[in-house]
């Protein structure tokens, strides 16, 4: 570093600082370069809205996968969002700080468990349970939604806790001084004040759910069809890519990259929404 001198070091660091954004651009560029020509050539409407996926016959309609991803993700939100926000509110408002100091990192450990392990638990425990109690094949929208709902809990809980903690104490004191109970304060003052952060946490959780691959492949069953009930087997966008990438060639492979483009666009939209919610919170203070 001596060789570079102060100015040199500064320039080097400035260059390095662009690594993340360059990586992002590189990824977007190559996925789009591989996928977009296919979407245009095949026809965007036919690609997105046709329901027949049959690579051998040259048919590449991903509508069933889009519907499946939406179902599984919304299901995951139904499980994860209420559970996660309830957890976060309880831990910040109703429990001594010290308990939270232990419980929060423990829950964050949930995030470290590999997605294949979640998937495996889904296959070994959850799917048989669904099969025997509710019928159907077990590997289903419901199983996928339940597993993903649990997987996004750490994201939702930890960001929600941060935003609820960021609410100034004077808000709570004002409400308590007016004679409100702790719970009334929580749901009428604290949670509304932390709303944008909580929404951001839910959107980020949604992004994680829609992008999750291995767990969903293992538990959702992977049948290419539009689900009629939560007990049906489905294949999500991510599962479609991962299942066929191993052997796909030519147009088939291009179609999988095109699926990747769709996924990337959805994720980018969700991330921008979450970013907007977070900035709104920052602007308010």
């Amino acid at each position: 570093m001596k060789l570079l001198g102060e100015r040199g070091v500064q320039r080097l660091l400035a260059g390095i600082a662009f690594s993340a954004i360059s990586a992002l651009l590189l990824i977007a560029l190559f996925i789009i370069k591989e996928g977009l020509p296919f979407i245009i050539g095949y026809g965007p409407a036919k690609f997105l809205l046709a329901s027949d996926w049959n690579p051998q016959l040259g048919r590449f309609g991903i509508w069933p996968m889009i519907v499946a991803s939406v179902w599984v993700t919304l299901g995951a939100m139904l499980v994860g969002a209420p559970l996660g926000v309830a957890c976060a509110a309880y831990l910040t408002e109703f429990v001594p700080r010290r308990v939270m100091g232990v419980v929060k990192p423990t829950i964050e450990l949930l995030a470290g468990i590999p997605s294949v392990v979640y998937g495996f638990i889904g296959v070994m425990v959850l799917a048989p349970l669904i099969r025997s109690s509710l019928g159907g094949p077990g590997l289903s929208v419901l199983a996928g939604a339940a597993i993903l709902g649990v997987m996004i809990l750490p994201t939702i809980i930890s960001i929600s806790i941060d935003s609820i903690q960021a609410v100034p104490n004077s808000y709570r004191e004002g409400s308590l001084a007016l004679g409100a109970t702790r719970w009334q304060t929580t749901y009428m003052v604290t949670i509304p004040a932390a709303k944008s952060g909580i929404i951001a946490s839910i959107i980020l959780g949604m992004g994680r759910a829609i992008g999750e691959t291995m767990a969903v492949i293992m538990v959702a069953g992977n049948a290419v069809k539009i689900p009629g009930s939560p007990l049906d087997s489905v294949r999500t966008l991510t599962a479609n890519i991962a299942l066929e990438m191993g052997y796909a060639t030519g147009r088939h492979r291009e179609a999988l990259f095109a699926t990747g483009v769709v996924l990337l666009v959805i994720i980018m939209i969700l991330n921008s929404l979450a970013g907007m919610a977070i900035r709104k919170r920052a602007a308010k203070r």
């Binding site: 990824i27 996925i31 990747g260």
Partner: peptide, 10 residues
Amino acid sequence: GIPSIIFGLF
């Protein structure tokens, strides 16, 4: 926020 499968494709 990018899903791991996209990293894989890339």
